[in-house]
Simulated scan of single mutants.
Amino acid sequence: MVKLDVITTRGGDGGETSLGDGTRVRKDALRVAAYGTVDEVNATIGLLRLHLAGDRQADAMLGRIQNDLFDVGADLCVPGTGEDRLRVTDGQCLRLEGEIAAMNADIPPLRSFVLPGGSPGAAHAHLARTVTRRAEREAVALAAEDAVNPAVIRYLNRLSDHLFVLSRRLNGNGTGDVTWTPGATR
């Protein structure tokens, strides 16, 4: 049970914050950067959901993903990989893979790279995808220095794929994609 009755604690005024296990670290620590960027991903998905125009299936997927992202943040904010804390599981990654396959089944193959844009929903999906890639890079950097649950990195990798395919789905199953024309502006 989470209970947050005091929001302003002043505990971080000196540039430090507490991890999930109570350890105090600098606010610019790799671990804090990683779960902070996961929080940014969640916020960008919140914006994306505003542009779904009644697409209940996409909204439900993104609602599950937003909940998962709190799991990812909770996992990252506690050092180590022990099972005594909430940890991301491969089942969450497999769910994303299933959703990717289902969405991609109706989308024609790409003939060029896709530029972020098209519909407002697709543009916001691309923004969420790029922030997810940054979160993944930060989690990988953290894993090079400290223990990170490998399922977190897999989840973030799958999520960026999911958001890419969702962007194409939101662009009329790829018909509204804006594609790259190599050298077009030389």
Rank of each mutant, 00 (worst) to 15 (best):
G46F: 01
G73F: 01
Y35M: 03
S119Q: 15
S119P: 12
N173K: 13
G11S: 10
R26V: 11
R95K: 09
T44N: 15
S167F: 00
R169F: 15
S112C: 11
T175S: 14
V38F: 02
T181I: 11
P116V: 02
D28W: 08
A34H: 05
D90C: 07
G174K: 07
E99S: 15
R95Q: 12
G98D: 14
P150I: 06
G172R: 08
N173L: 12
Q57Y: 09
G82M: 05
A60G: 11
R137H: 06
R154S: 14
I100P: 02
A139I: 05
S18R: 12
G20M: 04
G73E: 01
L30Y: 10
G14S: 12
L48P: 03
G98N: 14
I45R: 07
G117F: 00
C93G: 12
E138G: 05
I100L: 08
V165A: 09
R186F: 08
N67E: 10
V148H: 00
N173G: 09
F113I: 09
L48W: 04
A122M: 11
L48H: 02
P150E: 06
T81H: 03
I107G: 05
P120T: 03
V72A: 03
L86R: 14
A60L: 13
P79Q: 06
A125N: 09
F164N: 01
E40N: 07
V41M: 04
G14L: 13
